[in-house]
């Protein structure tokens, strides 16, 4: 019996298909490695993404062989606390999907409720459609998606946006991948009140909080990217800072760290400015304990300890 044409085209022999080579051809491995190197921690997320990539790769091969026909559902939900890297991972996800040929362009359009929902009757549908059009061929990332649904107000226009989204998610799976993101608990409630979404979302990925050690690694990475570094005392102070900051409200993982570092750079600049005399290159690069310890976080922490 002769092999079907498609099999001949990709050189299937008795030994089968080389998935490794297939992987190398799509350059997905590079994105996955980038994800590994760029992002600290997030082990479960990375594993899930590798699994999804493997599934899609196999699916792609199967499709070429005529074994699978339909486009798999690719819509996802990313849940996790703020600052756990959801947007960054979504960006990489778009790239992976593009390299595997599941989206044509591979760009990411990041929106929130304000971009989708209008101010008055008849405003929402065109607004949502504009956003969807912009995201076509790429990934639409809806941050804090649960704000779309406001059960306390039955006339809320969010419902209209939800209906349009559902329709597009179903009918134009080839054109658009939607990723919903937000806090785990509220997303859960959102999906419970909108069962249409749950059944259309194939992959739920949960982003864990970073450990103190991981946050320290993130801080060092962020500083290195801007040609700064901690000295030994500064590093120790920052480790204490992370412990103290975590106990306080509005802790947003890596985002809090970034903001803290920005303020420390500010204090470092001020310190050098007020200090008479010359500064060395070394000074300009180093963030020391004083820059860290001046943070208000320590004060509040001590007060709390007293009480």
């Amino acid at each position: 019996m002769e092999a079907p044409e498609s099999m001949v085209a990709i050189g299937v022999d008795a030994a089968g298909i080389d998935l490794r080579r297939e992987l190398a051809d799509t350059h997905v491995a590079e994105v996955l490695d980038l994800l590994d190197n760029e992002l600290v921690g997030l082990a479960p997320v990375k594993t899930r993404i590798r699994q999804i990539a493997a599934l899609l790769l196999v699916d792609r091969v199967r499709r070429r062989m005529g074994l699978a026909s339909e486009t798999p559902t690719l819509h996802m939900s990313f849940t996790g606390n703020p600052g756990t890297g959801k947007t960054t991972v979504a960006l990489r996800m778009a790239e992976i999907l593009h390299k595997l040929g599941y989206v044509r362009r591979g760009h990411l359009v990041s929106v929130t409720r304000d971009d989708l929902v209008g101010q008055y009757i008849g405003h929402t549908a065109p607004k949502t459609r504009e956003v969807i059009k912009k995201a076509m061929g790429g990934v639409l990332f809806i941050d804090e998606a649960y704000y779309l649904y406001r059960p306390e107000n039955e006339r809320d226009y969010g419902q209209e946006a939800i209906e349009i989204l559902l329709q597009v998610m179903e009918n134009q799976r080839d054109d658009l991948v939607v990723i919903f993101a937000g806090y785990a608990e509220r997303m859960e409630r959102f999906f419970r009140s909108n069962p249409g979404f749950r059944s259309r979302i194939a992959h739920h990925i949960d982003f864990p909080d970073y450990t103190d050690k991981e946050l320290m690694a993130i801080a060092e990475k962020m500083l290195a990217a801007q040609n700064y570094r901690f000295d030994a005392a500064g590093a120790k102070a920052f480790r204490d800072y992370i412990v103290a900051r975590r106990k306080q409200p509005h802790f947003a993982n890596a985002r809090s760290i970034r903001n803290a570092l920005d303020r420390m750079r500010l204090r470092q600049a001020n310190r050098h400015f007020e200090h008479p005399g010359l500064v060395s290159l070394e000074d300009l690069m180093t963030i020391d304990a004083a820059d860290v310890r001046a943070s208000r976080v320590f004060e509040i922490d001590q007060e709390q300890d007293k009480r």
Binding site: R105, R129, K133, K134, G137, G138, D175
Partner: peptide, 14 residues
């Protein structure tokens, strides 16, 4: 006018 789109699918939709 559609000036901020990346993919023809959006135009086909309209």
């Amino acid at each position: 006018p559609m000036f901020d789109i990346k993919d023809a699918a959006a135009v086909m939709l309209e």
